[in-house]
């Protein structure tokens, strides 16, 4: 029976593969745990990949949600009309003493509004004399 080297490449070269059926199950038994390890590793890889994909997906979704929230919240503050107008605290520009001083100046410089409204001097008697 010819040797099937292709299927036995995992064996070391030093270890001669003996022809005989009795040996084969032993050899096969040696291979099984390795394959299981490989499968487990593969499964782990897949799991890690899935976890990474889900994680990164969640992160992306989170970023999008946060970005969306930040976008939608900005106009709400600036555009939405406030239910009650913010009371504008009008601070007088001048102190009380200054306001009194300003009024004193105004009264001292008081000029009657009537002075800028002088009644027009018009000729009250416009008539055509009787011809003589």
């Amino acid at each position: 029976m010819p040797k099937d080297y292709l299927s036995q490449t995992q064996f070391s070269i030093e270890e001669p593969i003996l022809d005989g059926q009795a040996k084969m199950p032993e050899e096969e038994k040696k291979v099984e745990p390795d394959q299981l390890d490989k499968q487990a590793a593969l499964k782990k890889k897949r799991l890690y990949f899935i976890l990474a994909a889900v994680g990164s997906g969640l992160i992306i979704v989170g970023i999008i949600v946060l970005f969306g929230m930040s976008l939608s919240s900005t106009p709400q503050i600036t555009q939405a009309p406030s239910p009650t107008p913010t009371p504008v605290v009008v601070e007088p520009d001048l102190g009380l003493r200054e306001q009194i001083d300003v009024l004193v100046d105004e009264v001292n410089q008081y000029e009657k509004p009537s002075r800028s409204l002088v009644f027009p001097s018009v000729e009250a008697d416009i008539r055509v004399p009787e011809p003589r």
Binding site: E106, K112, P113, S114
Partner: peptide, 17 residues
Amino acid sequence: LVYRVLYNLDLSQMNSY
């Protein structure tokens, strides 16, 4: 009328003060 209104304007200015 003019003098009445003019005086009223002067007076209202003083009243405003």
